[in-house]
């Protein structure tokens, strides 16, 4: 489904990604973790072209990001993304947030989009909140609306960029539960997170990154039981201590 092949990225002379390679199959839930500043967010933003990179290539559903023939907007419409800070549109209601892209990009009718939005809101447990504005919702609720907004495009794969990092502790689980349901429904997911509980519940693989390098790429259970590198061991023990 996704093939990351030797991706290198520099900000000026500072290299943020070094020879990153990985492939992600349909239905996999890949957890990307590592210390802050290790390039996790940058890497997943390369997958939908929100960040550019100088060397290597990423192929999503047989389409190369780098190929001049690829229409990046088309590709993005099939790759959902959920952000750390939600990024709901504050001037639109929840329903309008969810229906904007289906109407403008997929050219679906208003009624059809609204029906779908209502179904999705029900799926994330927010049926009663469709007419509200984002500022009237809690952080956890906003993030669930953001997930619904991405799902409304019927994406092939969902990218999550630290979806629970900006949340108060009591709201983390309501978002993780939605993500777990999504994973169990068979959605292909790439999740940057420090929530190791989530990784252990539904993760199929872990990419451990440090200093712009994918240090380990292994099945979840193996990674947590027997991390190979010292860096991963140090990272895991620091997380557990927290």
């Amino acid at each position: 489904m996704i093939k990351i092949d030797g991706v290198c990225k520099w900000y000026g002379s500072h290299q943020v990604l070094t020879e990153c390679s990985a492939s992600i199959a349909r239905g996999e839930v890949v957890v990307v973790c590592g210390p802050s500043g290790s390039g996790k967010s940058t890497l997943i933003k390369c997958i939908n072209g929100l960040e550019s990179f100088q060397r290597g290539d990423i192929v999503v559903d047989q389409e190369s990001i780098k190929s001049p023939k690829t229409k990046i907007y088309k590709l993005r419409s099939r790759v959902g993304m959920v952000f750390q800070s939600f990024e709901l549109y504050p001037h639109l209601t929840c329903i309008e947030n969810i229906t904007l892209a289906p109407q403008k990009v997929l050219k679906r009718s208003r009624d059809e989009s609204i029906d779908r939005a209502k179904t999705l809101l029900k799926q994330v447990g927010l049926s009663a909140h469709g007419a509200k504005y984002p500022s009237q919702l809690s952080g956890g609720q906003q993030q669930r609306v953001a997930i619904a907004r991405s799902l409304a495009m019927d994406p092939l794969v969902m990218l999550f960029d630290e979806p629970t990092s900006a949340l108060d502790p009591e709201m983390i689980n309501e978002v993780l539960d939605v993500m777990v349901d999504l994973a169990r429904s068979g959605m292909t997911m790439v999740v940057v997170t420090h929530e190791m509980g989530f990784a252990q519940r539904v993760g199929t693989r872990v990419l451990f990154m440090d200093a712009g390098v994918i240090v380990e790429d292994r099945a979840c259970s193996e990674f947590f039981d027997r991390p190979e590198s010292d860096r991963a061991r140090a990272f895991l023990s620091s997380i557990v201590r927290r």
Binding site: K45, L50, R78, V79, E87, Y89, L100, A101, A146, S150
Partner: peptide, 23 residues
């Protein structure tokens, strides 16, 4: 306008012009 708003709009497949216009 927060930079993330543009990213979010683009990530749903809106074109640059659409993202500017609607978001």
């Amino acid at each position: 306008v927060r930079r993330g708003q543009l990213s979010a709009a683009l990530s749903t497949g809106l074109s640059h012009v659409q993202a500017l216009r609607y978001v």
